[in-house]
Computed example of a mutant assay.
Amino acid sequence: MNKKVILSCAVTGAGDTTAKSPHVPVTPKEIADSAIKAAKAGATIAHIHVRDPKTGKLSHDVSLFQEVVERIRESETDVIINLTSGGGGDWVPDEKDPLRGGEGTDLQTPEERHEPIGKLLPEMCTLDCGSTNFGNMLYVSPTDWLRKQAKMVQLSGVKPELECFDTGHVRFANQLVEEGLIDGDPLFQFCLGIPWGAAADAETLSYMKNRIPNNSRWAAFGIGRMQMPMAAESLLQGGNIRVGLEDNLYLKKGQLATNEQLVDKAVGIVHSLGSDIMTPSEAREELHLLNPYRKED
C-alpha cells in the first residue's frame, strides 16, 4: 500500500458535462477558482482543460489556458499545474462519407496540441499514449504524432504524465521510454472505465502497473461510480490517485458534487486506510519537477 499519496484533481475535462451539472467550471475564472478550492481541500495537482466561456464546449485557445494558469499562480496557492496536451483528437466518421470527419470531429496537429505547453511551461502535462474507441467516437493519437509530441515536451522541460487508456498504450509508453523520449523516472496514469478502453477493476489495474519500468511512478482513476473505488484500489496497490469532475459528477447517488467535495472525500478514504496526502512540495521532490514559479523560503 502507498503510505504517501499524490492526489490529482481533474477540474473540468473536455466532455459535454456542463448541461449535466452546474458545478462544472467553464470560464477561466471558474476553472481557476475550482482548482484553488480543490488544492485547499487537499489536492496536490490540478489537471486543467479549458472551455469556451460562451458555449461551455472544449476549447484549445491558449489565451484561456494562460488566464487559468495566471489566476492560480497569482493566488499563491501551492498546487502543481498539469495542463492537458490531448488537444483536438476527436474523429467522428461522416454518415454519408465515412472517409471524412462528421459533426463533432475536432483534430489538431502535434504542434497545435503542444502549443499551451510550450508557451506556458507548466510543471506537468498529459501525453495520451495511443488512439482508442471513446464511446462512439475515435480519439486519434498516432504513434508518429506521439513521438513528435513527446520530443517537444522533452525539450520544454515539462514532466509528461503518460496517459494509458488501454493495455496497448502501456506498451507504447514503454517504447517512448526505450527510445529516450521520456527523461527521468516515467510517470504513468492508468485511465480506467472509458467505453471502450481498459476496465475499471483491480485485475486490469494490476496487469497494467506490472508492465511498466521498475523506476516508474504511477496513478490510476476510474470514471463515474468507479471513481472512489478505484482511488482506494490504486492506493492499496501502491499507486497515486485522481478524482474530479472531469471523470465523475456525483458525490453519491443522486447528489451532484463539486471538485473540492470529491477531493475531500478522497482525502477521507486515504486517511481511513492509514495513508496521507503529499503536499505539492513533497510531490515536486518525488517527481523531480522543475518549478520556476515557486517562491523560495
Score class of each variant (00 low, 15 high):
90 D>H: 01
106 D>R: 10
237 Q>V: 02
240 N>T: 01
67 E>W: 01
46 A>G: 05
276 D>T: 15
246 E>K: 05
201 D>H: 12
200 A>V: 05
78 D>N: 14
196 W>A: 07
215 N>V: 03
106 D>F: 13
34 S>P: 05
124 M>T: 05
65 F>C: 05
160 P>I: 07
116 P>A: 05
227 Q>N: 10
3 K>W: 00
170 V>S: 02
54 K>D: 15
54 K>L: 15
120 L>M: 07
7 L>Y: 04
48 I>T: 05
229 P>T: 01
110 P>W: 00
249 L>W: 13
245 L>Q: 05
126 T>H: 04
192 L>N: 03
133 N>M: 14
3 K>D: 00
274 G>P: 06
42 G>S: 04
178 E>G: 06
244 G>H: 02
39 A>C: 08
126 T>E: 00
181 L>Q: 10
259 N>I: 06
242 R>W: 08
11 V>H: 02
122 P>W: 12
221 F>H: 06
215 N>A: 06
132 T>E: 11
151 K>A: 12
194 I>T: 03
34 S>C: 07
230 M>T: 00
291 N>C: 13
190 F>E: 10
150 A>E: 03
21 S>E: 10
173 A>T: 08
120 L>C: 08
218 W>V: 01
30 E>W: 10
255 Q>S: 05
143 T>E: 15
33 D>L: 08
230 M>S: 01
76 E>R: 15
289 L>Y: 11
105 T>E: 11
245 L>K: 07
146 L>H: 07
125 C>Q: 03
285 E>F: 03
